[in-house]
């Protein structure tokens, strides 16, 4: 699957319950627009953005999916070869957070550790109606090796940071994968490197999780 995507192309899939603001997040990030009258997303839509990270330029291909439970079956089509997943919940709706947990389980089971996970609690502008506590969400994110951010598509808060962190991590992950693969191919030194890789890979999830809690 890696040969299909270009060297600097990264695929991100947005998952989460209906009406948590997935489309609004993407539109704020890509076009810097916001409308409180957003159409429902049917099946999925696609947007792309080019960003610079250090010396690297990378293209983010962002797949925005429909949130209704009925479309769950189509999920694999979108996350199958994704580099990263942004799981969105609504901070005013505990049910949507439970749904994020389901997605994490499914992604870890179906795709494994290779996919970079990021959880975003949207609609923090509605702080009065908040039902999902920040600490609770952060704790959970850390436990599954995911970033956690609080966002507001309406106010444009936290979104740049979310995608930037996700992109950085995806680049890192891919470089790791590449070096591991080339190491395997190069033969002689391989055993040592593989061991080293395994440990770093195992630890990276937890490390990034705790790092992410600072927002």
């Amino acid at each position: 699957m890696a040969d299909v995507r270009g060297k600097n192309n990264y695929k991100i899939v947005l998952l989460g319950e209906g009406r948590v603001g997935k489309t609004s997040l993407v539109l704020r990030y890509v076009n810097n627009t916001f409308s409180d009258k957003q159409q429902t997303t049917i099946q999925a839509s696609f947007l792309s953005k080019r960003i610079n990270i250090g010396e690297n330029t990378c293209n983010l291909a962002i797949w925005d999916t429909a949130g209704q439970e009925r479309f769950h079956a189509l999920g694999p089509i979108y996350y199958r070869d994704a580099d990263g997943a942004l799981l969105v919940y609504d901070t005013t709706d505990t049910e949507s957070f439970a749904k994020v947990k389901n997605w994490v389980k499914e992604l870890r089971k179906m795709v494994g550790q290779e996919i970079v996970l990021c959880i975003a609690g949207n609609k923090i502008d509605l702080d009065k109606e908040r039902q999902v506590e920040k600490s609770e969400a952060e704790e959970y994110a850390a436990s599954v090796g995911a970033y956690h951010f609080q966002t507001s598509a309406k106010l444009g808060k936290g979104i740049e940071e979310t995608f930037l962190a996700l992109a950085k991590k995806m680049i890192e992950q891919r470089q790791e994968n590449d070096s591991r693969q080339s190491a395997r191919r190069s033969g002689g030194n391989a055993p040592i490197l593989v061991v080293a890789d395994d440990t770093s890979n195992g630890g990276s999830g937890a490390a990034s999780g705790s790092k992410a809690c600072n927002c």
Partner: peptide, 8 residues
């Protein structure tokens, strides 16, 4: 939920 999100 979808009513207002139909041809808004």
């Amino acid at each position: 939920l979808d009513l207002e999100r139909t041809f808004p």
